[in-house]
Computed example of a mutant assay.
Amino acid sequence: MRTADAPKVPVQVVASALLELRRLAGKPSLDQLVRLTKQQGPRWAMPRTTIDDKLHGRSAPKVEHVLALVVAFRDYATAAGNPLPREFCDEGAWRSECVAMDRALADPRSHDYRGMVARDILAAREGHTDGTAPPVTASAEPSETAWVEHVLRTVGPETAGKELPPKDATAMANVLQAAGRTEELGRLLRAAAGRSAHDVLTMSEAGGLDIGGQLIRLALEDHSIARMAALVTEAEHHHADGAVGLIHLGVRHRPILNVVNLIKTIHTNGGSPFIGEILSAGLRGRSAREVSLFLIGLRAAKMRDDADVLLYLISLSHDKNELLNVISCLKERHRYADATKLRAVIEPLWWRRPPRPR
Protein backbone atom coordinates (compact mmCIF):
# COMPACT_ATOMS: atom_id res chain seq x y z
CA MET A 1 0.00 0.00 0.00
CA ARG A 2 1.37 3.42 -0.93
CA THR A 3 1.57 6.18 1.67
CA ALA A 4 -0.82 8.30 -0.36
CA ASP A 5 -3.43 5.57 0.08
CA ALA A 6 -2.94 5.33 3.85
CA PRO A 7 -6.10 5.54 5.98
CA LYS A 8 -7.03 9.03 7.15
CA VAL A 9 -10.05 8.31 9.36
CA PRO A 10 -8.76 8.54 12.98
CA VAL A 11 -9.93 5.10 14.13
CA GLN A 12 -8.50 3.47 11.00
CA VAL A 13 -5.16 5.25 11.40
CA VAL A 14 -4.78 3.94 14.95
CA ALA A 15 -6.02 0.44 14.01
CA SER A 16 -3.59 0.26 11.08
CA ALA A 17 -0.71 1.28 13.34
CA LEU A 18 -1.65 -1.37 15.90
CA LEU A 19 -1.84 -4.03 13.17
CA GLU A 20 1.60 -2.97 11.95
CA LEU A 21 2.97 -3.09 15.50
CA ARG A 22 1.51 -6.59 15.84
CA ARG A 23 3.28 -7.60 12.62
CA LEU A 24 6.60 -6.15 13.84
CA ALA A 25 6.21 -8.03 17.12
CA GLY A 26 5.96 -11.37 15.32
CA LYS A 27 2.18 -11.50 14.84
CA PRO A 28 1.01 -13.02 18.16
CA SER A 29 -2.32 -14.82 17.88
CA LEU A 30 -5.54 -13.50 19.38
CA ASP A 31 -5.35 -16.15 22.11
CA GLN A 32 -1.83 -15.05 22.98
CA LEU A 33 -2.95 -11.43 23.10
CA VAL A 34 -5.82 -12.37 25.41
CA ARG A 35 -3.29 -14.00 27.75
CA LEU A 36 -0.81 -11.10 27.54
CA THR A 37 -3.44 -8.46 28.29
CA LYS A 38 -4.86 -10.53 31.14
CA GLN A 39 -1.39 -10.69 32.71
CA GLN A 40 -1.43 -6.88 32.99
CA GLY A 41 -4.32 -6.95 35.47
CA PRO A 42 -8.14 -6.81 35.41
CA ARG A 43 -8.24 -3.25 34.09
CA TRP A 44 -6.27 -4.19 30.96
CA ALA A 45 -7.67 -7.66 30.19
CA MET A 46 -9.33 -7.89 26.75
CA PRO A 47 -11.39 -10.74 25.24
CA ARG A 48 -10.76 -12.02 21.69
CA THR A 49 -13.71 -10.19 20.17
CA THR A 50 -12.64 -6.81 21.59
CA ILE A 51 -9.04 -7.29 20.45
CA ASP A 52 -10.13 -8.22 16.93
CA ASP A 53 -12.59 -5.32 16.86
CA LYS A 54 -9.98 -2.72 17.83
CA LEU A 55 -7.26 -4.10 15.54
CA HIS A 56 -9.56 -3.82 12.54
CA GLY A 57 -10.95 -0.40 13.40
CA ARG A 58 -14.60 -1.42 13.73
CA SER A 59 -15.01 0.94 16.70
CA ALA A 60 -12.91 3.55 18.47
CA PRO A 61 -10.61 2.05 21.12
CA LYS A 62 -10.37 3.38 24.64
CA VAL A 63 -6.95 4.45 25.84
CA GLU A 64 -6.85 1.32 28.05
CA HIS A 65 -7.36 -0.88 24.96
CA VAL A 66 -4.55 0.80 23.06
CA LEU A 67 -2.08 0.70 25.95
CA ALA A 68 -2.90 -2.94 26.77
CA LEU A 69 -2.27 -4.01 23.17
CA VAL A 70 0.94 -2.00 22.84
CA VAL A 71 2.32 -3.55 26.05
CA ALA A 72 1.24 -7.01 24.85
CA PHE A 73 3.07 -6.52 21.52
CA ARG A 74 6.14 -5.19 23.32
CA ASP A 75 6.28 -8.10 25.77
CA TYR A 76 5.73 -10.68 23.04
CA ALA A 77 8.47 -9.20 20.85
CA THR A 78 10.90 -8.96 23.77
CA ALA A 79 10.28 -12.59 24.78
CA ALA A 80 10.93 -13.63 21.17
CA GLY A 81 14.27 -11.79 21.17
CA ASN A 82 13.10 -9.16 18.69
CA PRO A 83 12.32 -6.03 20.78
CA LEU A 84 10.26 -3.28 19.22
CA PRO A 85 11.63 0.26 18.80
CA ARG A 86 11.27 2.04 22.10
CA GLU A 87 9.51 5.05 20.58
CA PHE A 88 6.79 2.79 19.15
CA CYS A 89 5.91 1.59 22.67
CA ASP A 90 6.07 4.85 24.61
CA GLU A 91 3.01 5.11 26.88
CA GLY A 92 2.96 8.89 26.88
CA ALA A 93 3.06 9.01 23.07
CA TRP A 94 0.16 6.56 22.79
CA ARG A 95 -1.88 8.46 25.39
CA SER A 96 -1.30 11.58 23.31
CA GLU A 97 -2.39 9.62 20.23
CA CYS A 98 -5.66 8.69 21.92
CA VAL A 99 -6.30 12.30 22.95
CA ALA A 100 -5.66 13.41 19.37
CA MET A 101 -7.86 10.64 17.97
CA ASP A 102 -10.79 11.55 20.25
CA ARG A 103 -10.44 15.21 19.35
CA ALA A 104 -10.32 14.40 15.64
CA LEU A 105 -13.42 12.22 15.89
CA ALA A 106 -15.35 15.24 17.13
CA ASP A 107 -14.02 17.37 14.26
CA PRO A 108 -15.68 17.23 10.81
CA ARG A 109 -12.21 17.64 9.29
CA SER A 110 -11.06 14.33 10.83
CA HIS A 111 -10.55 12.83 7.36
CA ASP A 112 -7.24 14.74 7.37
CA TYR A 113 -6.01 12.96 10.50
CA ARG A 114 -2.47 11.62 10.19
CA GLY A 115 -1.83 10.43 13.71
CA MET A 116 1.18 10.89 15.95
CA VAL A 117 3.09 7.76 16.96
CA ALA A 118 0.72 5.93 14.57
CA ARG A 119 1.95 8.16 11.75
CA ASP A 120 5.56 7.22 12.49
CA ILE A 121 4.82 3.50 12.59
CA LEU A 122 2.97 3.61 9.27
CA ALA A 123 5.69 5.80 7.72
CA ALA A 124 8.37 3.33 8.84
CA ARG A 125 6.39 0.52 7.19
CA GLU A 126 6.53 2.30 3.85
CA GLY A 127 10.21 3.12 4.21
CA HIS A 128 9.49 6.78 3.40
CA THR A 129 7.26 9.65 4.51
CA ASP A 130 4.75 12.02 3.02
CA GLY A 131 6.80 15.00 4.16
CA THR A 132 5.29 15.32 7.63
CA ALA A 133 7.78 13.25 9.63
CA PRO A 134 11.27 11.78 9.27
CA PRO A 135 11.67 7.99 8.97
CA VAL A 136 11.80 6.27 12.35
CA THR A 137 14.39 3.61 13.12
CA ALA A 138 14.98 1.54 16.22
CA SER A 139 17.72 3.90 17.37
CA ALA A 140 16.10 7.19 16.38
CA GLU A 141 14.90 9.60 19.08
CA PRO A 142 11.67 11.41 18.20
CA SER A 143 12.06 15.20 18.11
CA GLU A 144 10.43 16.74 21.17
CA THR A 145 9.85 20.01 19.34
CA ALA A 146 8.22 18.23 16.39
CA TRP A 147 6.03 16.28 18.79
CA VAL A 148 4.92 19.48 20.50
CA GLU A 149 4.12 21.11 17.19
CA HIS A 150 2.04 18.14 16.10
CA VAL A 151 0.10 17.97 19.36
CA LEU A 152 -0.64 21.69 19.21
CA ARG A 153 -1.88 21.42 15.64
CA THR A 154 -3.95 18.34 16.40
CA VAL A 155 -5.58 19.09 19.76
CA GLY A 156 -4.47 22.57 20.82
CA PRO A 157 -2.85 23.74 24.08
CA GLU A 158 -6.05 23.54 26.19
CA THR A 159 -6.71 19.87 25.47
CA ALA A 160 -3.01 19.09 25.87
CA GLY A 161 -2.99 20.77 29.28
CA LYS A 162 -6.12 18.95 30.43
CA GLU A 163 -5.60 15.46 29.05
CA LEU A 164 -1.96 14.62 28.36
CA PRO A 165 -0.12 12.64 31.07
CA PRO A 166 1.42 15.10 33.57
CA LYS A 167 5.00 14.45 32.47
CA ASP A 168 4.10 15.04 28.82
CA ALA A 169 2.10 18.18 29.54
CA THR A 170 5.05 19.51 31.58
CA ALA A 171 7.51 18.66 28.80
CA MET A 172 5.31 20.59 26.37
CA ALA A 173 5.17 23.56 28.75
CA ASN A 174 8.97 23.59 28.98
CA VAL A 175 9.32 23.58 25.18
CA LEU A 176 6.81 26.41 24.82
CA GLN A 177 8.57 28.47 27.48
CA ALA A 178 11.99 27.92 25.88
CA ALA A 179 10.54 29.05 22.55
CA GLY A 180 9.05 32.19 24.11
CA ARG A 181 5.50 31.14 23.16
CA THR A 182 3.91 32.65 26.24
CA GLU A 183 0.36 32.83 24.89
CA GLU A 184 0.17 29.10 24.16
CA LEU A 185 1.99 28.33 27.41
CA GLY A 186 -0.56 30.35 29.35
CA ARG A 187 -3.47 28.52 27.70
CA LEU A 188 -1.91 25.14 28.45
CA LEU A 189 -1.19 25.98 32.10
CA ARG A 190 -4.64 27.48 32.68
CA ALA A 191 -6.22 24.26 31.39
CA ALA A 192 -3.84 22.13 33.47
CA ALA A 193 -4.71 24.13 36.61
CA GLY A 194 -8.12 22.47 36.67
CA ARG A 195 -6.70 18.94 36.91
CA SER A 196 -6.58 16.80 40.03
CA ALA A 197 -4.43 17.88 42.97
CA HIS A 198 -2.04 15.02 42.22
CA ASP A 199 -1.58 16.08 38.59
CA VAL A 200 -1.17 19.78 39.45
CA LEU A 201 1.51 19.12 42.06
CA THR A 202 3.28 16.54 39.90
CA MET A 203 3.45 19.02 37.02
CA SER A 204 4.47 21.85 39.34
CA GLU A 205 7.31 19.80 40.75
CA ALA A 206 8.52 18.70 37.32
CA GLY A 207 8.13 22.14 35.76
CA GLY A 208 10.59 23.96 37.98
CA LEU A 209 10.28 27.27 39.77
CA ASP A 210 8.85 29.39 36.96
CA ILE A 211 6.36 27.02 35.30
CA GLY A 212 5.52 25.36 38.63
CA GLY A 213 4.86 28.74 40.25
CA GLN A 214 2.61 29.85 37.39
CA LEU A 215 0.64 26.62 37.56
CA ILE A 216 0.13 26.80 41.33
CA ARG A 217 -1.05 30.40 41.12
CA LEU A 218 -3.56 29.46 38.45
CA ALA A 219 -4.75 26.44 40.46
CA LEU A 220 -5.27 28.67 43.49
CA GLU A 221 -7.64 30.90 41.55
CA ASP A 222 -10.17 28.27 42.58
CA HIS A 223 -10.80 29.59 46.09
CA SER A 224 -12.97 26.71 47.24
CA ILE A 225 -12.08 25.07 50.54
CA ALA A 226 -12.37 21.60 49.01
CA ARG A 227 -9.80 22.43 46.32
CA MET A 228 -7.29 23.92 48.76
CA ALA A 229 -7.78 21.03 51.19
CA ALA A 230 -7.11 18.53 48.39
CA LEU A 231 -3.91 20.37 47.41
CA VAL A 232 -2.65 20.48 51.00
CA THR A 233 -3.43 16.79 51.55
CA GLU A 234 -1.71 15.82 48.31
CA ALA A 235 1.29 18.03 49.15
CA GLU A 236 2.28 15.51 51.83
CA HIS A 237 3.47 13.23 49.00
CA HIS A 238 5.58 15.88 47.28
CA HIS A 239 8.61 18.04 48.06
CA ALA A 240 8.18 19.87 51.37
CA ASP A 241 9.49 23.22 50.10
CA GLY A 242 6.91 23.26 47.34
CA ALA A 243 4.18 22.39 49.83
CA VAL A 244 5.13 25.29 52.10
CA GLY A 245 5.09 27.71 49.18
CA LEU A 246 1.69 26.40 48.09
CA ILE A 247 0.26 26.86 51.58
CA HIS A 248 1.50 30.42 52.00
CA LEU A 249 0.18 31.41 48.57
CA GLY A 250 -3.17 29.76 49.19
CA VAL A 251 -3.77 30.93 52.77
CA ARG A 252 -2.41 34.41 53.23
CA HIS A 253 -5.26 36.26 51.49
CA ARG A 254 -8.14 34.03 52.57
CA PRO A 255 -10.74 35.35 55.03
CA ILE A 256 -10.00 34.13 58.54
CA LEU A 257 -13.16 32.04 58.87
CA ASN A 258 -12.31 30.44 55.54
CA VAL A 259 -8.91 29.40 56.94
CA VAL A 260 -10.60 27.93 60.03
CA ASN A 261 -12.96 25.93 57.81
CA LEU A 262 -10.01 24.81 55.68
CA ILE A 263 -8.25 23.38 58.74
CA LYS A 264 -11.46 21.69 59.85
CA THR A 265 -11.90 20.12 56.40
CA ILE A 266 -8.33 18.84 56.37
CA HIS A 267 -8.85 17.21 59.77
CA THR A 268 -12.05 15.62 58.47
CA ASN A 269 -10.09 14.26 55.48
CA GLY A 270 -7.55 12.60 57.75
CA GLY A 271 -5.27 15.44 58.82
CA SER A 272 -1.99 16.75 57.47
CA PRO A 273 1.52 17.41 58.80
CA PHE A 274 1.19 20.92 57.37
CA ILE A 275 -1.49 22.20 59.76
CA GLY A 276 1.15 24.16 61.68
CA GLU A 277 2.29 25.77 58.45
CA ILE A 278 -1.30 26.79 57.70
CA LEU A 279 -1.59 28.36 61.16
CA SER A 280 1.63 30.27 60.61
CA ALA A 281 0.63 31.41 57.12
CA GLY A 282 -2.78 32.45 58.40
CA LEU A 283 -1.18 34.94 60.83
CA ARG A 284 1.00 36.75 58.31
CA GLY A 285 -0.07 40.30 57.61
CA ARG A 286 -3.21 40.06 59.75
CA SER A 287 -4.61 42.80 61.92
CA ALA A 288 -5.06 42.32 65.68
CA ARG A 289 -8.79 41.86 65.14
CA GLU A 290 -8.20 39.13 62.51
CA VAL A 291 -5.69 37.35 64.76
CA SER A 292 -8.16 37.30 67.63
CA LEU A 293 -10.93 36.03 65.33
CA PHE A 294 -8.60 33.27 64.12
CA LEU A 295 -8.03 32.08 67.69
CA ILE A 296 -11.70 32.42 68.61
CA GLY A 297 -12.73 30.54 65.46
CA LEU A 298 -10.50 27.58 66.30
CA ARG A 299 -11.84 27.48 69.87
CA ALA A 300 -15.43 27.65 68.61
CA ALA A 301 -14.75 24.78 66.18
CA LYS A 302 -13.42 22.72 69.12
CA MET A 303 -9.95 22.43 67.59
CA ARG A 304 -8.25 22.90 70.93
CA ASP A 305 -4.79 21.65 69.98
CA ASP A 306 -4.65 23.89 66.93
CA ALA A 307 -5.85 26.84 68.99
CA ASP A 308 -3.10 26.23 71.54
CA VAL A 309 -0.49 26.11 68.76
CA LEU A 310 -1.86 29.34 67.32
CA LEU A 311 -1.75 30.99 70.74
CA TYR A 312 1.91 30.00 71.02
CA LEU A 313 2.66 31.42 67.55
CA ILE A 314 0.92 34.67 68.51
CA SER A 315 2.99 34.87 71.69
CA LEU A 316 6.20 34.82 69.63
CA SER A 317 5.48 38.30 68.33
CA HIS A 318 8.08 40.91 69.32
CA ASP A 319 5.60 43.73 68.86
CA LYS A 320 4.27 44.48 72.34
CA ASN A 321 1.70 46.95 71.08
CA GLU A 322 0.34 44.42 68.61
CA LEU A 323 -0.03 41.84 71.37
CA LEU A 324 -1.83 44.38 73.54
CA ASN A 325 -4.24 45.04 70.68
CA VAL A 326 -4.90 41.30 70.30
CA ILE A 327 -5.49 41.03 74.06
CA SER A 328 -7.94 43.93 73.88
CA CYS A 329 -9.87 42.28 71.04
CA LEU A 330 -10.03 39.00 72.95
CA LYS A 331 -11.38 40.74 76.03
CA GLU A 332 -14.03 42.50 73.97
CA ARG A 333 -15.28 39.08 72.96
CA HIS A 334 -15.03 37.73 76.51
CA ARG A 335 -12.11 35.38 75.76
CA TYR A 336 -10.43 36.14 79.06
CA ALA A 337 -8.46 32.88 79.38
CA ASP A 338 -6.51 33.43 76.16
CA ALA A 339 -6.14 37.15 76.91
CA THR A 340 -4.64 36.31 80.30
CA LYS A 341 -2.12 33.89 78.75
CA LEU A 342 -0.96 36.49 76.26
CA ARG A 343 -0.75 39.13 78.97
CA ALA A 344 1.56 36.82 80.87
CA VAL A 345 3.87 36.75 77.86
CA ILE A 346 4.25 40.52 77.95
CA GLU A 347 4.62 40.79 81.73
CA PRO A 348 5.25 37.30 83.14
CA LEU A 349 4.71 38.39 86.76
CA TRP A 350 2.14 41.07 86.24
CA TRP A 351 -0.49 39.33 88.36
CA ARG A 352 1.87 39.08 91.34
CA ARG A 353 2.52 42.79 91.60
CA PRO A 354 0.96 44.42 94.61
CA PRO A 355 -1.83 46.84 93.87
CA ARG A 356 -0.78 50.43 93.60
CA PRO A 357 -1.71 52.54 96.59
CA ARG A 358 -4.54 54.89 95.97
Rank of each mutant, 00 (worst) to 15 (best):
L330V: 00
Q40F: 01
D102E: 14
P134H: 10
Q12K: 11
E141T: 14
A4T: 12
S59I: 09
W44V: 06
R217D: 15
L220F: 01
L313A: 05
R103C: 08
L33T: 05
G276H: 13
I247M: 14
M303R: 06
L220R: 02
S272R: 06
L185R: 08
P108K: 00
E163F: 14
L298H: 02
P165L: 09
P157S: 06
I346G: 02
R58G: 00
E144P: 07
K27Q: 15
E347L: 12
R286N: 01
H128I: 10
R289W: 04
D5P: 03
A300N: 14
H238P: 00
L188Y: 09
A173S: 11
R304A: 14
V175N: 02
R23K: 12
V244N: 10
A15R: 02
V99R: 08
A192R: 08
T145L: 13
H248A: 11
S315N: 01
Y312G: 12
S272V: 07
A72L: 08
L188N: 08
Y113Q: 05
D112S: 14
R95V: 15
V155L: 11
I263G: 00
C98I: 14
A191I: 05
H150F: 00
S315M: 04
A288P: 13
H150P: 00
A93R: 13
I225G: 07
G270K: 05
W44L: 14
A77D: 08
W351F: 15
P85L: 01
M203I: 06
D222E: 08
G81W: 07
P348T: 07
V9W: 15
K8A: 14
H65C: 09
S139V: 12
L246M: 04
A191E: 01
G127M: 12
F294D: 00
T265K: 14
R286Q: 08
T159G: 06
V155M: 15
V34I: 13
C98W: 13
R153T: 09
A77P: 02
L311K: 09
R352Y: 11
L330E: 03
R86V: 03
A243M: 09
H111D: 12
A307C: 02
M303F: 04
E20H: 11
S59G: 08
W44E: 13
W94L: 09
L69W: 02
A25V: 00
A307D: 01
H128P: 05
G242T: 06
S280C: 09
V251R: 01
C98L: 15
L293Q: 12
D107S: 03
P42K: 12
F73C: 02
A240G: 05
T37I: 07
K62C: 07
A106Q: 13
H239S: 10
G131M: 05
V71W: 15
Y113E: 05
R22M: 04
M116D: 07
F294T: 03
Q177H: 15
G131I: 07
D31T: 11
V326G: 07
A4K: 11
